[in-house]
C-alpha cells in the first residue's frame, strides 16, 4: 500500500521535473519581455522529433548538442516572427495569438514530416528498473531529474556569472533603463526565447525515451507547464521545481486512486486554488506598481 504510494510519488517527481523545465522556459522570456511562448509545447515536440531523427546516426549523447542548437534557433525564430512586432506595438493579444499560430504551424509541419503516430525513442540507459528500497525506478527517470536540475542550474549560473547573463538580468529588472545603459534589449529578448526553447527541446529528448515521441506530444505538456508556472509563480526558479513536482505527484495520485480519465483535472484545480489564496504563486512575490 505504502509502496504503491511511494512508487507513484517517485514517478510523479520525474514527470514533474519535465513540467518544471518547460515552466522555467516560460519564466525566462517572461522576465525579459513580459511575454511567453504559447507554443512552448511545440518547441519541446520539435526538439524531441529532431532528436529522434538525429539519434539514429549519432547515438543519444552526441545527439544532445544538435538538439540544443536546434532549440536555440527555433526559439529565436519564434521571437522574430511572433513576438518582436507585438512588443513594439505593445499589443498583448498580438504575441499571444502569434505564438499560438506558430505552434499550430509547427505541429502541422511535424505531422507532415514525421507522421501522426507515436514513435519509440531509443533509451540511452538500461530499461530495466532499479529497486530502491522497494520502489522501482527507471534509470531514465533518475536521468530526467538530474538533467533537469543541471539544465536550470546551468542557466542560472550563466545569468549570475557571465556578462551576457547580467545583461539578461538587467533587462528583466528594467528594460528601459537597460536599454539606456547600452544593452541591446531586443537581442536579449531574442536570446531569452532561444534559451527558453533550448530548455524545452532538452526536456523533449529527456522525456521521450520514457514516453515515446510524436507530433501530438507537445500540447498537453506545454499546458501543464502553464499551471506549474502559475502555481510556482512566474518569477521564482524554486517555485517551478516545487510546482512541477506537486503537479506531477498529484496527477499520478489522481490517476491511480480516482481514474486515469481525470488525471489532468487536478492541475486546473490546483491552479485555481493557488490563484485564490496566493495570486502571485506559491513562491512569487507580489510587485508594487509605481505611478
Amino acid at each position: 500500500m505504502l509502496q504503491i504510494l511511494a512508487q507513484l510519488i517517485v514517478s510523479g517527481i520525474s514527470v514533474g521535473m519535465i513540467y518544471a523545465v518547460i515552466a522555467f522556459g516560460y519564466q525566462l522570456t517572461f522576465a525579459t519581455s513580459k511575454t511567453l511562448n504559447f507554443g512552448q509545447g511545440e518547441a519541446l515536440m520539435l526538439g524531441s522529433l529532431v532528436g529522434w531523427t538525429v539519434v539514429a546516426y549519432t547515438g543519444y549523447w552526441l545527439m544532445l548538442p544538435v538538439v540544443l542548437a536546434f532549440g536555440l534557433v527555433q526559439g529565436a525564430v519564434v521571437e522574430r516572427l511572433g513576438v518582436r512586432q507585438a512588443i513594439k506595438t505593445k499589443s498583448e493579444s498580438g504575441w499571444i495569438m502569434a505564438t499560438i499560430a506558430l505552434g499550430i504551424i509547427f505541429r502541422n509541419l511535424a505531422e507532415n514530416i514525421w507522421g501522426r503516430d507515436a514513435l519509440k525513442f531509443p533509451s540511452p540507459l538500461p530499461e530495466t528498473p532499479i529497486a530502491l528500497g522497494g520502489v522501482r525506478v527507471l534509470p531514465m527517470e533518475i536521468a530526467i531529474v538530474v538533467g533537469a536540475i543541471a539544465m536550470m542550474a546551468a542557466v542560472e549560473l550563466f545569468n549570475r556569472r557571465s556578462i551576457y547573463g547580467k545583461a539578461v538580468v538587467a533587462t528583466a529588472n528594467d528594460r528601459d533603463a537597460a536599454g539606456l545603459m547600452g544593452i541591446n534589449t531586443g537581442r536579449v529578448i531574442t536570446f531569452s526565447y532561444a534559451l527558453s526553447s533550448l530548455a524545452a527541446a532538452f526536456a523533449g529528448v529527456l522525456i521521450a525515451p520514457v514516453t515515446s515521441t510524436g507530433a501530438a506530444m507537445g500540447g498537453a505538456l506545454g499546458l501543464k507547464a502553464f499551471a506549474v508556472a502559475i502555481i510556482g509563480g512566474l518569477s521564482s526558479g524554486v517555485g517551478v521545481v516545487v510546482g512541477g513536482v506537486i503537479l506531477g505527484i498529484t496527477e499520478n495520485l489522481t490517476g491511480y486512486y480516482i481514474s486515469t480519465g481525470y488525471k489532468d483535472v487536478p492541475g486546473l484545480v490546483l491552479l485555481l486554488l493557488v490563484l485564490s489564496f496566493r495570486p502571485a504563486g506559491l513562491f512569487g512575490r507580489a510587485t508594487i506598481k509605481k505611478v
Binding site: 517572461f30 513580459k34 511575454t35 511567453l36 504559447f38 498583448e92 499571444i96 498537453a220 499546458l223 502553464f226 499551471a227 508556472a229 502559475i230 512566474l234 481514474s259 480519465g261 481525470y262 489532468d264 483535472v265 492541475g267 486546473l268 491552479l271 485555481l272 490563484l275 485564490s276 495570486p279 502571485a280
Partner: peptide, 27 residues
C-alpha cells in the same frame, strides 16, 4: 480568480480551463 494578477494570466487560465472542460465532458 485569473484577473487578480495582471499579466497574461487570463489567457493561461482559460486555456487550461478549456482543455479540462473538454476532458470533463468526455469523462
Amino acid at each position: 480568480l485569473a484577473l487578480r494578477v495582471t499579466g497574461p494570466y487570463l489567457a493561461m487560465v482559460t486555456l487550461a480551463f478549456g482543455t479540462i472542460i473538454q476532458i470533463l465532458i468526455n469523462e
